[in-house]
Design a binder for these strands. Structure first.
Lengths: 138, 138
DNA sequence: CTTGACTCTGGAGTTAAGTCAAGGGTCTAT
DNA sequence: ATAGACCCTTGACTTAACTCCAGAGTCAAG
């Protein structure tokens, strides 16, 4: 049978965060309040590990903990509507960011190859500062 | 003829940041030290505006000011090599992030449609918390 | 030559997201 | 029944990236 309860430290290592972070997330209600043992040790269900990972991923993509909390909200119908709208909005954001990331990727790639040419041709050129603009005065 | 010098406030509004941010960036050497008028007002070249925008964009994509500074560095051949390497690394990061963003996009989109179905079908269902996992215990 | 909008410096304050430390329990393997 | 590994709470600290403030100077228009 699968393990079904985890203490703080175990959640932390499994999800790849610090133990303090797990407690911090619980305080912020990003994780539901965990149950406790007789000795007051937290006990989390396995879903909490996934949840922490979800949070971390969303965070990587530029969502704040607050926004993430919005996405995790649970409740009646109007809550649902709110999550729905937020979701649509976030999806829209994400698409915008995907687009500009691709553009930026292009900029960096262009610079990279320019930089390579520079290094190849005049072996010790002035340099290749990454800046999508002229190089003289600022 | 084009305007060729800008004071702090103008750079700020054109680049869409606060005036404090412009000064802050100058302090951090993300912008080259601006020239001054007789009365000690900063004078920036037009490139500074582009530079601020570049910084903001990179930042949106998850680069820290410190990393960005690395990309802007200028200097001899080894500096160049360093920028080159950093650039390659960042490009690689970016690709990873693009991938996981797309995946996450999928997750959100799936939730969105699930949420919509929920709202459509049982008009006032329990709700649709965004969580890529089971809903019972944490 | 005054007024109102703008700018300067230096330093303190803020926010998000942790991170650390002190002082003290708990658990389990021997 | 004790050592070593965990865990608890409270509250202070840290870092990045701003943001705000006071007190003072500058500039363009009328």
């Amino acid at each position: 049978m699968q393990q079904t309860e985890f203490r703080t430290g175990e959640v932390a290592t499994r999800a790849g965060v610090s133990i303090d972070t797990v407690r911090y997330y619980e305080r912020l209600k990003l994780l539901p309040r965990a149950g406790r043992t007789a000795g007051n040790f937290r006990l989390f269900g396995p879903d909490s590990i996934d949840r922490v990972q979800f949070i971390k991923q969303a965070q990587e993509l530029g969502f704040s903990l607050d926004e993430i909390k919005g996405l995790l909200a649970t409740g009646g119908a109007e809550e649902c509507r709110k999550v729905h709208d937020l979701l649509g909005e976030k999806l829209h954001d994400l698409d915008g960011r995907l687009k500009s990331m691709k553009k930026f990727r292009g900029v960096l790639a262009r610079h990279l190859s320019e930089c390579e040419r520079e290094l190849r041709e005049h072996k010790q050129a002035a340099c290749c500062p990454v800046l999508p603009i002229g190089k003289k005065r600022y």
